[in-house]
Every structure is written in C-alpha cells, then in structure tokens.
C-alpha cells in the first residue's frame, strides 16, 4: 500500500486541490487524529449524553449523598446525591456550546478588523492597532469580571466577553497575512478594475488568507474552552443547575479537605482531556497547513 502511494504521490499531488491536500495530510497526522477523537467523544456526549447516562444528571438523592465510587455510581455522588458519572457526561454540553460560539464571534470580528487594518494601513491601522494592543494587555479574567459586573451573568455575556477578547489576537494574525497579500498582482488588478475596497478585501483577499485564519481559530478554540471553564469555576460563566464541569468543581471543591475527591477529580480530568484534545487537533491543523 505504501509502495503504491510513494510511486503515485507526485501525480496525486497535482490532481488533488489544495483543500484535499490539507485534509489528506490531516488524516495522516497522528496528533490530529488523537485530538479529534477526544473532541468528538465529548461532542457525542454533549449531543446524546442524556440517552446513555445511567442517571438523570440533575436528580438529587439525599440519602446517597457523597457516596464514594461504587458499582451503582461509578464516579460516586455529589453533596446532594447526584450521580457524578452522569453529570460529567452531560457536563460537556454548555462548554461545547459557549466556547465554539465565542470563537466564531472572535473569528468573524477579528477577520474583519484584520482585513481593514491590513488593507488600509496608515492612520486606520495605527488607531485600531493601538486600541487592539491595549485590549490584549488586559487578562481575559479581568475583562470578564468587569463586563459581568456591568452586564450581569449569562451565557451571552460570556460569549461576547471571550469573543471580543480574542478578536484582537485573530485580527493581528489576519492583518499580517493581508499585508503580504495586498502587494500581490491580483490585488493590483482588482484595484485597476476599480473594484470597491469592500470587494477587494472580502472577495479577492479573504479567500487567500483562509489558511492562517483556520489555524488561528482552532488554536483560539482551545483557549476559549480554557476561558469558559475558568469563568464558570469563578462563578461568572455558566450558571447552576447546569452540570458544567467548571461549575461542578466550584461548588464541590470546598469539601475536598474532607476527602470527597470524586466530586471534583472527574470533572477536572474531563476539562483536561477536552482542552488537550482541542490543542492536539489544533497542532495537527497547524502542521497540515504549514507542510
């Protein structure tokens, strides 16, 4: 099989489009496959978790509260007797809704800003870039604290806060890609045809800067999960009674001094696996585009 591939490889490369080429190299990357497998596992849990979770993640059972892992409750029960295993499975739902939406917002806003600053340069670039740099200097947690004081806690606030905090980073990546693209002949041709600036930016340049945007987006998704989990843990993100992992840790970690480790350990491991999965996948995407 490999011998066949090596001999026909040059032909294949010419016949496949650039997209197919990237997909092909992704499927060969072990890092990507491991990462995407972990992520898909949690996505399946998010969608169908309640169908195969053994208990209702929200049903309390005070008599069996804080019972350690056993045959009935694989991961034990929490302080009001909810089954930790079921909660961990269903707990992926909110974080896997909020983090991708925040990343999407960051990508759209960041791409638009990056195109504007990279294409116009000059004073537009100077002003917008300084503002973006200032934003990047403030830690996300602090921005979130302030926004939540001003706007109140909700999933929408979290999406907006994380989306807008990450937008400058994506804008910076897009800007540097656009700076290189705008010197190329096809941009000059578009300008000579008197295409509008909008057309040149979004129809001519944008398709050519998609690869760096995709790479940056996958990396940002990892950070978005990091940020959502942290905010939920701080009590500023996803709200009870959601079985969200960060939230569960936050409501149970006060008791770990008493030895009730099962109430937090599995949630912590779930977050860890998801974050590492996304980062492995992102690493694979990065490699596929930079080969």
């Amino acid at each position: 099989m490999s011998a066949v591939q090596t001999t026909s490889a040059p032909d294949d490369t010419r016949r496949r489009g650039p997209l197919a080429e990237v997909v092909f190299s992704l499927l060969r990357s072990r890092t990507f496959l491991v990462g995407i497998a972990i992520v898909l596992f949690w996505v399946v849990c998010a969608f169908f978790g309640e169908h195969f979770a053994p208990y209702d993640p929200l049903a309390d059972d005070i008599i069996n509260a804080l019972s350690p892992p056993s045959a009935e409750h694989w991961f034990g029960t929490d302080q009001i007797g909810r089954d930790v295993f079921s909660r961990v499975i269903v707990g992926s739902r909110d974080i896997l809704t909020v983090a991708p939406l925040a990343t999407l917002l960051a990508t759209v806003a960041g791409t638009a800003l990056g195109l504007l600053t990279g294409y116009f340069r000059g004073i537009v670039d100077d002003i917008v870039s300084r503002i973006l740099e200032a934003f990047m200097a403030i830690p996300v947690v602090i921005v979130a604290l302030l926004a939540i004081v001003a706007l109140g806690t909700s999933k929408t606030t979290v999406i907006i806060v994380i989306g807008l905090s990450f937008a400058p980073i994506i804008a910076r990546t897009v800007r540097s890609a656009v700076l290189a693209e705008r010197e190329l002949d096809y941009v000059a041709a578009a300008q000579l045809r008197h295409e509008s600036a909008f057309h040149t930016m979004f129809v001519e340049i944008l398709p050519n800067v998609i690869p760096p945007i995709l790479v940056e987006t996958t990396v940002r998704l990892g950070y978005a999960i990091f940020a959502v989990a942290t905010l939920s843990f701080m009590g500023f993100g996803i709200q009870p009674p959601s079985p969200d992992w960060g939230l569960s840790i936050s409501s149970n970690y006060g008791m770990i001094g008493g030895g009730f480790w099962w109430t937090v350990l599995f949630d912590a491991l779930a977050i860890a696996s998801l974050v590492i999965g996304v980062n492995l996948a992102a690493d694979g995407v990065h490699g596929a585009f930079n080969d």
Partner: peptide
C-alpha cells in the same frame, strides 16, 4: 494549556 484551577485541583 490546562486551566490553572484544573491543575490546582
């Protein structure tokens, strides 16, 4: 890449 509170816990 892990959040501090996860490694902390």
């Amino acid at each position: 890449v892990l959040p501090e509170f996860v490694t902390g816990i």
